[in-house]
Amino acid sequence: MSHDDVLNPKQMPHDPEKATLEGKNKFLGFWFFLGGETVLFASLFGTYLALNGSTQGENTPENLFGLELVFIMTMLLLTSSLTSVYAMYHMKNHDFGKMQLWLVITVALGLAFLGFEIYEFYHYIHEYDFTFRSSAFGSAFYTLVGFHGGHVLFGLCWITALIIRNQKRGLNLYNAPKYYTASLYWHFIDVVWVFIFTVVYLMGKVG
């Protein structure tokens, strides 16, 4: 059987992402990678928490952060998590067209999130003169939030590449694991963001 055959929905196995050995390996390996990423972000959070009192002048978390923007960003990212769940739902039902559509929506929401984040950084730098170099708090803030933003950017490129590459081919057992791991990655980005808006913004605002 060639992998390039578009599978007849009637023949598609129950879990197309785990139907082949390669798929099983990818699935497991990617989860383990996320286990490692947990430690990576914990180290960044730890550094941030250790340094979040090391501010310079008026640029404290309480003065800087505006919750309205963060709230919108949170809603965007949470919703994008749901849309990628819908995409995987349609993958399991072998509805390739709808899966692609929901992924496009996910990418659009992710792009909006990233746009707001860039605006936020721009705003801090130009309105408050709060930069990566101005204090240890600044370094820690931009590194933690920036690492998350970098993950978002990477995820967007990844999902976009998958959408374009497979548009003409449809779903098969070769690319199903790729879609599935990309969606896991996207959810993990959301997991990290939940802690960022809680620990950095909300707790920063409370003081």
Binding site: W31, L34, G35, T38, A42, G46, T47, L49, A50
Partner: peptide
């Protein structure tokens, strides 16, 4: 996956407590 996520979470917790 659950084992490794909990493993990661345990190390993460230890790190955060330390810091």
């Amino acid at each position: 996956p659950a084992l490794m996520m909990y493993g990661g979470a345990a190390v993460a917790l230890l790190t955060i407590i330390t810091f």
